[in-house]
Structures are given as C-alpha cells and as structure tokens.
Measured scan of single mutants.
Amino acid sequence: RDEDEKEKIKEALKRGNEDKAKEIAKRANVSPEEYERLRKEAE
C-alpha cells in the first residue's frame, strides 16, 4: 500500500505534476526526506 503511494508520487513527478505529487505525499504521510528521494528517482 505504501509502495503504491510512492509509485503514484513518482508517476506524478515524471509528468511534472508536482502539486499532485505533494498532495499524495501529504496524504500518505511521506516524509520530506523520502519525498526528495522520490523526486530524484523520478528525474
């Protein structure tokens, strides 16, 4: 379940949809550090 959320965040970031990614991260309680890591992976 947690991994699904992280995949959704990465997908949103790949599409350049940072607002959606942040919204998912907030809902999934993803830490800022984890969010940054996902953002780097998505580049």
Score class of each variant (00 low, 15 high):
Arg1Cys: 10
Arg1Lys: 14
Arg1Glu: 14
Arg1Pro: 15
Arg1Trp: 14
Arg1Asp: 15
Arg1Gly: 14
Arg1Thr: 15
Asp2Pro: 13
Asp2Ile: 15
Asp2Ala: 12
Asp2Tyr: 15
Asp2Lys: 12
Asp2Asn: 13
Asp2Ser: 12
Asp2Trp: 13
Asp2His: 14
Asp2Arg: 12
Asp2Cys: 11
Glu3Trp: 13
Glu3Asp: 13
Glu3Leu: 14
Glu3Lys: 13
Glu3Gln: 14
Glu3Asn: 13
Glu3Ile: 12
Glu3Val: 13
Glu3Gly: 12
Asp4Gln: 11
Asp4Thr: 11
Asp4Pro: 09
Asp4Ser: 13
Asp4Lys: 10
Asp4Arg: 12
Asp4His: 11
Asp4Met: 12
Asp4Tyr: 11
Glu5Ser: 12
Glu5Arg: 07
Glu5Tyr: 15
Glu5Gly: 07
Glu5Ile: 15
Glu5Trp: 15
Glu5Thr: 15
Glu5Cys: 08
Glu5Asn: 10
Glu5Pro: 15
Glu5His: 15
Lys6Ile: 14
Lys6Ser: 09
Lys6His: 14
Lys6Arg: 14
Lys6Ala: 09
Lys6Thr: 10
Lys6Glu: 08
Lys6Tyr: 15
Lys6Phe: 14
Lys6Asp: 06
Lys6Gly: 09
Glu7Asp: 10
Glu7Asn: 13
Glu7Leu: 14
Glu7Pro: 05
Glu7Ser: 12
Glu7His: 12
Glu7Tyr: 07
Glu7Lys: 13
Lys8Met: 12
Lys8Phe: 06
Lys8Ser: 12
Lys8Pro: 02
Lys8Ile: 07
Lys8Gln: 14
Lys8Thr: 08
Ile9Gly: 02
Ile9Arg: 00
Ile9Lys: 01
Ile9Ala: 03
Ile9Gln: 01
Ile9Val: 07
Ile9Asp: 02
Ile9Leu: 08
Ile9Pro: 02
Ile9Trp: 01
Ile9Ser: 01
Ile9Thr: 02
Ile9Glu: 02
Ile9Met: 05
Lys10Ile: 10
Lys10Pro: 00
Lys10Ser: 03
Lys10Tyr: 04
Lys10Phe: 05
Lys10Met: 05
Lys10Asn: 03
Lys10Trp: 01
Glu11Asp: 14
Glu11Cys: 07
Glu11Asn: 09
Glu11Ala: 07
Glu11Pro: 03
Glu11Arg: 05
Glu11Val: 04
Glu11Gln: 07
Glu11Thr: 05
Glu11Phe: 00
Glu11Lys: 05
Glu11His: 06
Ala12Met: 09
Ala12Asn: 08
Ala12His: 13
Ala12Asp: 04
Ala12Val: 02
Ala12Pro: 00
Ala12Ser: 08
Ala12Lys: 03
Ala12Tyr: 06
Ala12Leu: 10
Ala12Gly: 03
Leu13Val: 07
Leu13Phe: 06
Leu13Pro: 03
Lys14Ile: 13
Lys14His: 09
Lys14Phe: 02
Lys14Thr: 08
Lys14Glu: 07
Lys14Trp: 01
Lys14Arg: 14
Lys14Asn: 07
Lys14Val: 09
Lys14Met: 10
Arg15Val: 14
Arg15Thr: 14
Arg15Trp: 09
Arg15Asp: 15
Arg15Glu: 15
Arg15Tyr: 09
Arg15Ala: 15
Gly16Phe: 04
Gly16Asp: 05
Gly16Arg: 04
Gly16Asn: 06
Gly16Ala: 05
Gly16Thr: 01
Gly16Met: 04
Gly16Val: 00
Gly16Leu: 04
Gly16Trp: 01
Asn17Cys: 06
Asn17Phe: 14
Asn17Ile: 05
Asn17Ser: 08
Asn17Trp: 13
Asn17Thr: 06
Asn17Glu: 15
Asn17Arg: 07
Asn17Pro: 03
Asn17Val: 05
Asn17Leu: 14
Asn17His: 13
Glu18Gly: 07
Glu18Trp: 05
Glu18Asp: 09
Glu18Tyr: 08
Glu18Arg: 06
Glu18Thr: 10
Glu18Met: 10
Glu18Phe: 10
Glu18His: 12
Glu18Asn: 08
Glu18Ala: 09
Glu18Cys: 08
Glu18Lys: 07
Asp19Arg: 11
Asp19Phe: 05
Asp19Trp: 04
Asp19Leu: 11
Asp19Lys: 12
Asp19Tyr: 04
Asp19Val: 13
Asp19Gly: 10
Lys20Asp: 12
Lys20Ser: 10
Lys20Ile: 14
Lys20Val: 14
Lys20Met: 15
Lys20Trp: 13
Lys20Arg: 12
Lys20Pro: 03
Ala21Glu: 01
Ala21Asn: 01
Ala21Phe: 01
Ala21Gln: 01
Ala21Tyr: 01
Ala21Val: 02
Ala21Ser: 04
Ala21Pro: 01
Lys22Val: 09
Lys22Met: 14
Lys22Asn: 07
Lys22Glu: 08
Lys22His: 09
Lys22Pro: 02
Lys22Thr: 08
Lys22Asp: 06
Lys22Phe: 07
Glu23Lys: 07
Glu23Val: 07
Glu23Leu: 04
Glu23Gly: 06
Glu23Ser: 08
Glu23Asn: 07
Glu23Trp: 00
Glu23Gln: 10
Glu23Phe: 00
Glu23His: 06
Ile24Lys: 02
Ile24Thr: 04
Ile24Cys: 04
Ile24Tyr: 00
Ile24Glu: 04
Ile24Gln: 03
Ile24Asp: 03
Ile24His: 05
Ile24Trp: 00
Ala25Gly: 04
Ala25Val: 05
Ala25Gln: 08
Ala25His: 02
Ala25Pro: 01
Ala25Cys: 04
Ala25Ile: 02
Ala25Lys: 02
Lys26Tyr: 03
Lys26Ser: 11
Lys26Met: 09
Lys26Thr: 11
Lys26Gln: 13
Lys26Trp: 00
Lys26Asp: 11
Arg27Leu: 08
Arg27Lys: 13
Arg27Cys: 06
Arg27Val: 09
Arg27Pro: 02
Arg27Gly: 09
Arg27Gln: 12
Arg27Ala: 13
Arg27Ser: 10
Arg27Trp: 00
Arg27Met: 07
Arg27His: 09
Arg27Asp: 08
Ala28Tyr: 05
Ala28Leu: 10
Ala28Ser: 10
Ala28Ile: 14
Ala28Cys: 11
Ala28Glu: 06
Ala28Lys: 06
Ala28Gly: 08
Asn29Thr: 05
Asn29Leu: 07
Asn29Phe: 06
Asn29Trp: 02
Asn29Asp: 09
Asn29Glu: 08
Asn29Gly: 15
Asn29Tyr: 04
Asn29Val: 05
Val30Tyr: 04
Val30Met: 11
Val30Thr: 06
Val30Lys: 02
Val30Gly: 01
Val30Glu: 01
Val30Pro: 00
Val30Asn: 01
Ser31Cys: 05
Ser31His: 06
Ser31Lys: 06
Ser31Ala: 08
Ser31Asn: 08
Ser31Asp: 10
Pro32Lys: 11
Pro32Gly: 10
Pro32Thr: 11
Pro32Val: 10
Pro32Cys: 07
Pro32Asn: 12
Pro32Phe: 10
Pro32Glu: 15
Pro32Asp: 15
Glu33Gly: 06
Glu33Cys: 05
Glu33Tyr: 01
Glu33Leu: 05
Glu33Trp: 00
Glu33Phe: 01
Glu33His: 05
Glu33Gln: 06
Glu33Asn: 06
Glu34Gly: 02
Glu34Arg: 00
Glu34Asp: 11
Glu34Lys: 00
Glu34Val: 01
Glu34Pro: 00
Glu34Leu: 00
Tyr35Phe: 15
Tyr35Ser: 03
Tyr35Cys: 04
Tyr35Arg: 02
Tyr35Val: 07
Tyr35Trp: 09
Tyr35Met: 11
Tyr35Lys: 03
Glu36Thr: 00
Glu36Leu: 03
Glu36Gly: 00
Glu36His: 02
Glu36Pro: 03
Glu36Met: 02
Glu36Gln: 04
Glu36Arg: 00
Glu36Ile: 02
Arg37His: 08
Arg37Pro: 00
Arg37Met: 08
Arg37Gly: 07
Arg37Asn: 11
Arg37Leu: 07
Arg37Glu: 13
Arg37Thr: 08
Arg37Asp: 11
Arg37Trp: 07
Arg37Tyr: 07
Arg37Ile: 08
Arg37Phe: 07
Leu38His: 01
Leu38Met: 08
Leu38Asn: 01
Leu38Phe: 02
Leu38Lys: 00
Leu38Ile: 13
Leu38Pro: 00
Leu38Glu: 02
Leu38Arg: 00
Leu38Val: 04
Leu38Cys: 04
Leu38Gly: 01
Arg39Asn: 06
Arg39Trp: 07
Arg39Val: 14
Arg39Ala: 13
Arg39Phe: 08
Arg39Lys: 14
Arg39Gln: 10
Arg39Pro: 03
Lys40Phe: 08
Lys40Thr: 10
Lys40Val: 13
Lys40Leu: 10
Lys40Arg: 12
Lys40Asp: 11
Lys40Ala: 13
Glu41Leu: 09
Glu41Val: 06
Glu41Ala: 09
Glu41Met: 09
Glu41Lys: 05
Glu41Gln: 10
Glu41Trp: 05
Glu41Asp: 08
Glu41Ser: 06
Glu41Asn: 05
Glu41His: 04
Glu41Thr: 06
Ala42Ser: 08
Ala42Asp: 03
Ala42Arg: 02
Ala42Gln: 06
Ala42Pro: 01
Ala42Trp: 06
Ala42Leu: 09
Ala42His: 04
Ala42Phe: 07
Ala42Gly: 05
Ala42Ile: 12
Glu43Gly: 08
Glu43Thr: 09
Glu43Ser: 09
Glu43Met: 14
Glu43Asn: 09
Glu43Lys: 09
Glu43Asp: 09
Glu43Ile: 12
Glu43Arg: 10
Glu43Cys: 09
Glu43Val: 11
